[in-house]
């Protein structure tokens, strides 16, 4: 009789876990069917033989897809060389993403700080002003940037009118255009997490810093920066990852030639008709993203353990 309540409690607990699985089933199934599962199919595709008109030959396996990510075989003498075209696109993607991250940081950090130091009632308005572009269609924002940097766009027209230049500067369809576009499009993703951690910043700590003879820069470097580091890391990750996988922005602003990884992947599923290579490239991109995320998770858990003391 004494065990009876405990038994009832354990049964109740088990029933609760079961109902929790039932409740989460629809979300889990949808995501498995339309997001996670296809990734496994793609993994399988990456090791199959390419079909002549796209697709693959089922059941015929080949390492050709993965081989082609990094190497190429000369059509005439079968010599193997590095796939320079691919590697340069990898390199461009990583380089542009890093520069984008740093640029958004340079613009975003002071902006987030500015918002966080406004009086409470106006602060909401500033946050709102950041949120609006964040939720505005990415394609529209890219298109807006295109209009600004076109040869006949505002920038060139203005510079010509001022007599700074005679001929319009070709910005569109260069790496610069992609960079401008990505900075413009991903800037809110940097500001919002930075703001979130700055909003919680205890300015009595800043006062304590000044009290202990720190100058403005010392306070920024020794007190503010370490305290908002979680937001800084989160913002950087939130900008870096979509930059790396960017597709729309380089397609619209980079034209056909200045490809990034996303466009290279699309090419394999379109004109390239090399699905195994496209699948292998996709997985490679995903792995790079996962590594970046892992770095973030480790960083976040570490700062979580030491922070909020």
């Amino acid at each position: 009789m004494a065990r009876e309540p405990e038994l009832a409690a354990r049964q109740a607990h088990r029933a609760e876990i079961r109902s929790r699985w039932l409740l989460s089933a629809p979300a889990l199934i949808i995501i498995f069917v339309a997001a996670v599962g296809p990734l496994f199919v793609m993994l399988a595709y990456s090791v199959m033989v390419r079909g002549d008109y796209g697709d693959v030959r089922f059941g015929e396996f080949s390492s050709e897809g993965w081989f082609n990510v990094f190497f190429q075989r000369d059509i005439f003498d079968d010599t193997i060389t590095y796939a320079d075209a691919h590697l340069s696109i990898f390199w461009r993607s990583i380089r542009l993403s890093l520069i984008t991250t740093v640029s958004t940081l340079i613009l975003g950090f002071p902006t987030a700080y500015f918002i966080a130091t406004r009086p409470r009632h106006t602060r909401e308005v500033w946050v709102f002003l950041i949120t609006i572009p964040f939720w505005t269609n990415l394609l529209i924002r890219t298109f807006a940037m295109q209009e600004v940097i076109r040869n006949e766009g505002v920038v060139n027209t203005l510079l010509q009118a001022l007599g700074v230049i005679d001929q319009p500067i070709q910005i569109l369809y260069t790496d610069w255009a992609i960079l401008f576009g990505m900075v413009y499009v991903y800037l809110p993703l940097m500001v919002l997490p930075l703001y979130a951690s700055m909003e919680r910043l205890d300015f009595r700590l800043v006062e304590a810093g000044y009290d202990l003879y720190a100058g403005r820069f010392a306070v920024l470097r020794r007190i503010i920066l370490p305290l908002v580091k979680p937001g800084l890391v989160a913002g950087s990750i939130l900008v870096f990852i979509p930059s790396l996988g960017a597709y729309v922005t380089p397609r619209v602003l980079g034209g056909g030639k200045n490809m990034m990884l996303g466009n290279l992947i699309e090419l394999q599923f379109g004109a390239g008709r090399n699905w195994p290579l496209g699948a292998a490239l996709s997985i490679t991109l995903m792995v790079i993203v996962m590594v970046a995320l892992l770095f973030y998770v480790r960083n976040a858990s570490r700062s979580g353990a030491t922070g909020h003391g």
Partner: peptide, 29 residues
């Protein structure tokens, strides 16, 4: 409880994979 972390990971998975990757995977399937 067992599986909770798995659920979090699943639910947030679409946020963690680049859109282009999910897009081509869906194209394949």
């Amino acid at each position: 409880y067992r599986g909770l972390t798995f659920k979090y990971a699943m639910i947030n998975q679409p946020l963690m994979v680049p859109e282009i990757v999910t897009a081509v995977a869906l194209l394949i399937v």
